[in-house]
């Protein structure tokens, strides 16, 4: 849960946030802010070789029919895959000092893999630029929905 305070009073119709690390910080691994750091697995040696944090990471196994399961690791990174998401709220919410407001976001991880044949391409990263871009677009367009807003 993320608590925001000091939000200006008003009626709000949408919520906007970004998936990834903005280029100013993604381009310089010594400008650490918030929890950004190599120390907590937010990047690793192969992503550092491209100077990028790992924006998203989905791992697991994938099976197709009777064939043996494969390890799956679908990651996004690099500045081109930094995405800003805007989601409209079902109804406007009024932010005021009278009561706390709450927005519950749902992330459907399967949607992140929409349009990607993860059995054929179980490992996605910088070397699979086109697929990675597809995954990043999925995060921007279909992974997140508003479950409730009050």
């Amino acid at each position: 849960m993320i608590q925001l305070s000091g939000v200006p009073v008003g009626d709000y119709k949408s919520i906007k946030f970004s998936v990834g690390v903005e280029s100013r910080y993604n381009d310089n691994l010594s400008l650490q802010i918030g929890e950004l750091s190599q120390l907590n697995g937010m990047t690793n040696i192969s992503w550092m070789w491209m100077t990028s944090y790992i924006f998203t990471s989905v791992g697991g196994t994938v099976k197709s029919g009777a064939s043996a399961p494969k390890n799956m690791l679908v990651e996004t990174g690099l500045n081109t895959n930094y995405k800003t998401v805007t989601i409209n709220l079902p109804t406007n919410i009024r932010i005021s000092s009278v009561k706390d407001s709450e927005i519950v976001l749902k992330a459907d991880v399967e949607k992140a893999l929409d349009g990607v044949d993860v059995f054929a391409n179980p490992i996605v990263g910088a070397s699979k630029a086109t697929i990675m871009a597809q995954v990043a677009t999925n995060y921007a367009t279909k992974v997140f929905t508003v479950a409730s807003a009050r």
Partner: peptide, 26 residues
């Protein structure tokens, strides 16, 4: 095709920035 997800890790820096600002001001 069946996908079993073991872990998911999303970094939302904009929100992180917000939080770090709040921590500083508190």
């Amino acid at each position: 095709m069946m996908i079993k997800i073991k872990y998911v890790n999303l970094k939302r820096i904009t929100i992180l920035l917000w939080l770090s600002l709040l921590i500083v001001s508190c």
